[in-house]
């Protein structure tokens, strides 16, 4: 359903860019399309919330990035004190270190994957926003210069090129 709405937004933008006669409205249409695509990318990384048990929450609250000394975790029975050998540099990315300690480590990584959104689409959207900002600035400045020359934003009156 959200994807359908996203597609609808995209189509509204496309319609606006194709049908409208005013240059500024065309620019707005293109930007609506841009945002629809950004929304789509964000939704790709969406993760539905998961109910965690108390111990799982505790496990996760010790973030793997705050490394150095391993966080102390006790399980339900309250007897074990388990030192997690969390690597000090970029812990999530080096897979060998995660597999090393079966009990705590793998659980944390699985829990982490279960409860976090995919960060990659967010990085993509950030990049896409910067790019669209650049193209928006250029488009608007071209609109302004055109207005200075022609005295109108109506593309039906700006028609020197044809053939």
């Amino acid at each position: 359903m959200p994807y359908a709405l996203c597609f609808l937004l995209f189509m509204i933008g496309l319609y606006c860019a194709v049908v409208k006669k005013n240059m500024v409205k065309i620019v707005i249409g293109i930007m609506v399309m841009e945002y629809a695509v950004n929304l789509f990318l964000i939704m790709l990384g969406y993760q539905a919330p998961v109910q965690l048990t108390k111990s799982e929450k505790q496990l996760l609250s010790t973030t793997p990035i705050a490394a150095g000394q391993g966080p102390v975790v006790s399980d339900e029975t309250g007897q074990t004190e388990e030192k997690l050998s969390v690597p000090s540099v970029a812990p999530i990315l080096s897979r060998e270190d995660l597999i090393e300690d079966e009990n705590g480590q793998v659980k944390i990584s699985q829990l982490f994957r279960m409860t976090t959104v995919d960060p990659l689409p967010q990085a993509l959207v950030l990049t896409a926003i910067v790019i669209s900002l650049g193209s928006l600035a250029l488009m608007i400045s071209i609109c302004i210069r055109t207005y200075e020359k022609y005295g109108t934003f109506d593309i039906t009156e700006i028609r020197r090129l044809k053939g």
Binding site: L138, M139, I142, C143, K149, I158, L161
Partner: peptide
């Protein structure tokens, strides 16, 4: 300017 705008709209799409 006219050509650039036209190019830019279609290129952006």
């Amino acid at each position: 300017l006219e050509a650039s705008f036209k190019y830019m709209v279609l290129g952006s799409v």
